[in-house]
């Protein structure tokens, strides 16, 4: 019956060994420098991050740029190679592993237009005919044109609803704020060792 204990101790031992190696050790190595970094995420963008998580954007959009010489992320203008400090202060992480759509690490640099983002969220095919991104009409309110002073979306004619305005909700605005905060404009300081 000696085998029982060998089996159990062996399994737990190998498991804990790897768990230490892949979860605790990275924490020890990565976190100190990230904590020092001077990165802030302001209120609305943090709200938008929640909306981003809630609608599962991660399943089609990554937020990690691979370095030069590995893939063509940088040549595509998706930004510079990502580093740990880019993700400070936002949890859950949204690195993503799928690019059905383009990487968003640096989307605010490529497309700074708020209107465009709102149109694109309302229905991506208003601005990109062949897009396969799902529409998010539920982030918008459709109200009678004469009952609101707010400005509606400037939709192309075939998407306009006569007598109605399409008004983005707070959620939609927060999400766009978040997208417009995804900006790698500031060069990253070289990390110290």
């Amino acid at each position: 019956m000696i085998k029982n204990s060998i089996l159990i101790i062996g399994i737990i031992g190998l498991f804990v060994f790897a768990m230490f190696g892949l979860t605790i050790l990275p924490k020890i190595y990565i976190e100190p420098n990230v904590e020092k970094a001077d990165v802030y995420v302001w209120g609305r963008a943090a709200e938008g991050h929640k909306v981003y998580v809630s609608h599962g954007c991660i399943y089609c959009h990554s937020q990690q740029v691979r370095p030069k010489g590995f893939g063509a992320d940088i040549e595509r203008g998706w930004g510079r190679a990502s580093v740990a400090t880019d993700y400070k202060g936002l949890t859950p992480h949204q690195l993503g592993t799928m690019r059905t759509g383009p990487d968003l690490s640096n989307i605010a640099q490529r497309q700074p237009g708020r209107d465009w983002h709102l149109l694109h969220l309302y229905n991506p095919r208003t601005v990109i005919k062949e897009s396969i991104m799902p529409p998010y009409p539920f982030l918008f309110e459709i109200v009678d044109a004469d009952k609101t002073l707010k400005e509606g979306l400037k939709l192309p004619p075939e998407y306009q609803i006569p007598g109605k305005k399409v008004i983005p909700t707070d959620e939609a605005n927060a999400l766009v704020d978040y997208l417009l905060s995804l900006n790698q404009k500031d060069p990253i300081k070289p990390q110290q060792n």
């Binding site: 768990m19 990275p26 924490k27 740990a84 993700y87 949890t91």
Partner: peptide, 22 residues
């Protein structure tokens, strides 16, 4: 063990990504 460790609120940023894929 996996379930318990992954539920601990001690992971953040890229460390969390590592834990996630582990």
């Amino acid at each position: 063990l996996l379930g318990v460790v992954s539920s601990l609120p001690i992971f953040d940023g890229t460390v969390q990504a590592g834990m996630n894929w582990w």
